[in-house]
């Protein structure tokens, strides 16, 4: 389990190895504070939706799960996205009701999480790993947590670098997204040193 956790945070990092959640990663990494908020929200949603989708996969979608000879795995896209969208909506309503201050801070980002590829990608990868690395609900929670934290780490580091780079002389045409992509590429190369670590 520890191996799965380390693997999902560092080696198979959502951003650097699979490019998941790049859209909001580039758009929202301008200040560390908002990056921290969005990262926390993504990690939370990830921890909840991956196990939910794991159960859904185990008891409804997998071949012979619902009834003998019934294979519903072609429905997994639509069911996963429905679970994610419904869950994000639920979180939004709960946060709005019980923690209005937090809601105002995260306001715009919460609904955006539904279309964050990292969430959907986490569930789809979980589905692929069933039977090899993920064999129980506990494993799926660990994987959700690890991949969420990996994304969180990436966006906060990126935001910190971008806050500093404001003061450097970047070629005019590279400012903004151009330099952000190159930095991410270099960070990805740095993260490659973790590959092959086994615990």
């Amino acid at each position: 389990m520890l191996n799965l956790f380390i693997n999902s945070v560092f080696i198979e990092n959502m951003v650097f190895a699979y490019f998941f959640g790049m859209c909001s990663y580039i758009a929202v990494s301008k200040s560390v504070k908002t990056a921290l908020g969005l990262g926390a929200a993504v990690t939370f949603v990830q921890v909840m939706t991956v196990p939910l989708n794991y159960l859904l996969n185990e008891y409804v979608l997998a071949p012979n799960a619902l009834a003998e000879g019934v294979d519903l795995s072609f429905l997994s896209f639509i069911l996963f996205i429905a679970v994610i969208a419904a869950f994000v909506q639920l979180v939004e309503m709960i946060v709005e009701k019980f923690a209005p201050a937090l809601y105002n801070q995260l306001g715009i980002f919460l609904p955006l999480i539904a279309v964050n590829c990292a969430i959907m990608g986490g569930s789809l990868f979980m589905q692929q790993m069933v039977g090899t690395e993920i064999n129980s609900v506990g494993d799926s929670i660990v994987y959700g947590l690890g991949s969420g934290i990996g994304w969180w780490l990436a966006i906060v580091m990126m935001a910190a670098i971008r806050e500093k780079i404001e003061y450097s002389h970047v070629p005019a045409a590279m400012k903004g997204p151009g330099i952000a992509f190159i930095i991410t590429g270099l960070m990805g190369m740095a993260f490659m040193i973790f590959s092959g670590i086994q615990l």
Partner: peptide, 18 residues
């Protein structure tokens, strides 16, 4: 490796915005 895709996209943006 994945990082090179990001760097190539960065360069394409550079050329395009120039």
């Amino acid at each position: 490796f994945p990082p090179m895709a990001l760097i190539i996209i960065g360069c394409i943006i550079w050329v395009h915005r120039s």
